[in-house]
Each structure stands twice: as C-alpha cells, then as structure tokens.
C-alpha cells in the first residue's frame, strides 16, 4: 500500500491529508476543531496570512522497522488545511490548543464597535 512506500522514504514527502474539521459558532466567537491524531505539538504550525489561517502538521508512525503489518488503515501523513477568516474575527486574540490529537482554534469576534454620533462642525 502507499503507506509502505511512504515509510521507506519518510524524509522525502509524506502523503498529504486533509484533516476532518468542524467549524461552529458560539456566543463568544467561532471554534474550529481539527482531528490531527499522531501530531505532536512541536510538529504543528499555524500560520495566519491576510485572511486565511493555515494549519500544517506531520504525523509519523510510531512503528519500528521490525514490525510487519497485517492490516493498514492509516499511515503517516502531513496534515494541511486552510480556513478563511472573515473581517469579524479578532486576529490578535486567536487561541489554539492541542489535546489528545484534536486542535482547537478559538476565533473571537471583534469587540462590537459602539455606535457613536459624529459631530458636525460649522465651517
């Protein structure tokens, strides 16, 4: 299977996987959950471009070379996923946490701009 070939030349390229993602909205903003099993904290990077947040992580198989596989349903891979951000997200306060292979991104909304009156100046 493709996993076996990936194992032999791990240093080159891992197969790219799009992680399963949930996007939902709550009172305090948007939440993005991504399944990244096997990705350690140091192998994960999150980049914000202008209006896109990109998550990249590598999962390596914890198997030694001596093992022979009887059944393979998942393999090592590189997780890549980009989510577009809207203007209503406060980029400065985005929080990310990784626990048990699930990445949680909290994208808080912008503080509501209070309505204000513009004084008219007499010329």
């Amino acid at each position: 299977m493709s996993e076996n070939t990936a194992n032999s030349n791990e240093a080159k390229t891992l197969p790219r996987v799009s992680p399963a993602t949930d996007i939902l909205e709550r009172e305090d903003g948007f939440y993005v959950f991504m399944d990244l099993p096997g990705v350690r904290r140091e192998d994960l990077s999150i980049d914000i471009n202008e209006n896109e947040i990109t998550v990249t992580g590598r999962a390596l198989q914890g198997a030694s070379d001596k093992e022979s596989f009887l059944e393979v349903q998942f393999g090592p891979g590189e997780y890549v996923r980009a989510v577009s951000l809207s203007d209503r997200v406060d980029r400065e306060r985005i929080k990310a946490s990784l626990k048990d292979g699930v990445l949680t991104l909290h994208l808080p909304r912008m503080e509501k701009l209070a309505p204000r009156r513009i004084p008219v100046q007499t010329a």
């Binding site: 399963a20 949930d22 939902l24 909205e25 709550r26 959950f33």
Partner: peptide
C-alpha cells in the same frame, strides 16, 4: 459532539 451552531461537520 460540541455544542454550537455548525457550519461544517466532518469529524465523526
């Protein structure tokens, strides 16, 4: 399942 208004649900 997480609580909230879902825009996208892919995770089983």
């Amino acid at each position: 399942t997480e609580q909230g208004k879902y825009y996208r649900q892919e995770r089983p």
